[in-house]
Simulated assay, not measured.
Amino acid sequence: MNAATLPIISLTSLDSDEGLAHLLQAASEVGFFYLVDHGLSHDAQQGYLALSKAFFQLSTKEKQSVDMIHSPHFRGYNAMGNEMTAGRFDAREQFDWMNEELALSAEQVRYPWQKLIGPNLWPSAMPKLKPTLTKLQTKLSDITVELLQKLCESLGVDGHALDHTIGAQPYTHAKLIRYPAQQSPQQGVGAHKDPGYLTLVMQDSQSGLKVERGNEWVDVAPIPGALVVNIGELLELASNGFLKATNHKVESPTQGSERYSIAFFMAAQLSATVPVLSLPPELKSRALGPSVDPSNPLLTDVGNNVLKGRLRSHPHVTRKHYCDEPLRHLLEKSFAHMPTADICDECRV
């Protein structure tokens, strides 16, 4: 796939029936598209990517001061080889931040996913990182909420049909990502689907993102100013499989190049349960149910679906913060119905 064959959607076109039809086709047949006219200029994006590069140029000591191992909420810095996808370690380093919230006390935690609620870790060496990324988080959140509502309209249901699942603001998770050059192509991030409603990706000029189409992997070439959008598993669930969450991956750059990107994931509130929308008869007849992966079942309760991914992706954080009682008991209770995979010697999920 090249830039000419990946659908390009203008956010400002979605007030028209023609624009909504184009959106529906892209989201149901491809699950990936470029978004333009979204209000975040190319220059602004370059500024955010430059800030990301400056973070990764901090000393190892400064980055480790906000290492994710210090956060039971899965926030902060991950060095190379600290995140897993599809059972293999990824060749990238990254900085994760989410909604800024107060952590619950141990006595308040009734469900294991509530442990995800908490503050972010911010490096003292970059005081402008927090306000700048918080501003970006708000902007991208607004874009995804508008896009989610337009997707509902394109499905022939009320544009606000999923508003109750996101409340005053959606649950968001974002990453600054650096893919260092490798001597030969490696798993920058392995093949996966995203667990939320929508993902936005801001790319630099270095290619590497690939989407699964049929039996081949095709490139998602960067287009200046465009954001890459992909459908998440929660939207596949809500549409009973009509909209497609698509496998994608990133191959590490080679020959001295680096790749920088910023990924933004929008989901329903952790406490929400995703409903199956009542589609019009014509679309309903074409909705064949969400895809089934026995090793990674989709859960309609958002908190557990999100937590499942975090526990598997960051085993070092899981072992430190999730394997003691009473969390172990809560995990066993919440995931008792699922096929199990090792987390640590005694905890399985």
Rank of each mutant, 00 (worst) to 15 (best):
A267C: 05
K193W: 15
Q183I: 15
K249I: 05
R310W: 09
A245H: 06
L14P: 12
V229R: 07
A226L: 01
H173C: 02
L151W: 00
D342I: 14
F264G: 04
V109W: 11
P297I: 05
D67V: 05
G188Q: 09
E236C: 03
E282S: 14
S313D: 02
P326L: 05
A21D: 08
L151I: 14
C152K: 02
K139R: 12
P7D: 03
S278A: 15
G208V: 07
K333G: 02
V30N: 07
N82T: 15
A3W: 05
Q114G: 10
L133V: 06
D96W: 01
A287D: 11
Q57Y: 02
P315I: 09
A263H: 03
A287M: 10
E212C: 12
S13A: 15
A86N: 14
P339C: 00
S291H: 14
R92Q: 10
Y322A: 03
G256A: 09
L298D: 02
G87C: 12
E101V: 10
L51N: 04
P180Y: 11
I177G: 06
L331F: 08
V220R: 02
G76A: 12
D17M: 06
V201R: 03
D324V: 10
L235E: 05
D43A: 08
H248L: 07
D342Y: 10
L20E: 01
N230T: 03
F265M: 00
V30L: 11
L307V: 07
E233A: 09
S278W: 00
A226D: 01
D158G: 13
L140Y: 08
A263N: 05
A50S: 13
R92A: 07
P7N: 04
T5V: 12
L58P: 00
L307T: 10
H192K: 07
Y197F: 13
G241I: 09
Q269N: 15
A268N: 08
Q149P: 02
V189F: 03
Q57T: 12
E153M: 09
G196E: 10
P7I: 04
V229S: 02
L307A: 12
A106L: 09
A272Q: 09
T12F: 00
H164V: 15
A272V: 11
C344R: 09
